[in-house]
């Protein structure tokens, strides 16, 4: 019977392992979560967001197309609405990001009456050609980003943003 008694040393050993194990788990869990999370998040990243803009209504004149998606911030999920400037070049759909490459304001097509065929940034008068190329001498240092874009059942669908491929 005395064999089964937990000695003082054993008892300390057990409890310390317990505490140590608990602490190790505490440290490991976040590490595991970091490692696993990106995998879990992969659903939906390469997805296109369907808009309610009909492709047949798109012309050579850029129009603003809004698209809404869920964005996960560190501690909450929120719905974000972004927009793109979409136009056709021949049959090809083109979607440009409206985010100014200077400091991030939203640019407008033909926003400056003196330059009706350019994008205009109201913040510091940055300008871009229709293909997104920044006009030298205005603050922006690079061209507007481009979005992957495709037609889905007659509607415009917007994909991931990428560097401008139209302005070489």
């Amino acid at each position: 019977m005395s064999n089964n008694r937990v000695s003082r040393r054993q008892f300390l050993g057990y409890t310390l392992t317990g505490v140590g194990g608990f602490m190790a788990a505490g440290m490991l869990m976040p590490m595991v979560r970091f490692a696993v999370d990106p995998v879990l998040q992969q659903k939906g990243t390469s997805d296109f967001v369907l808009t309610d803009q009909r492709v047949e209504d798109i012309t050579e004149e850029p129009v603003r197309v809004d698209f809404t998606f869920e964005q996960q911030d560190a501690w909450y999920t929120s719905e974000v609405t972004n927009s793109a400037w979409v136009y056709k070049e021949g049959d090809r759909l083109i979607a440009l990001s409206p985010v100014c490459k200077h400091l991030g304001c939203t640019v407008n097509w033909a926003g400056d009456p003196n330059h009706p065929n350019q994008f205009f940034c109201p913040c510091h008068a940055g300008r871009y050609e229709k293909n997104g190329q920044n006009v030298p001498g205005t603050p922006p240092l690079g061209p507007l980003d481009e979005y992957d874009v495709q037609e889905q059942d007659g509607f415009v669908a917007i994909g991931a943003a990428k560097e401008n491929t139209l302005t070489v």
Binding site: H102, L103, G104, C105, T106, C121, P122, C123
Partner: peptide
């Protein structure tokens, strides 16, 4: 508003 004028 911030989104529109972020840089200013």
């Amino acid at each position: 508003l911030e989104k529109q004028f972020k840089g200013r």
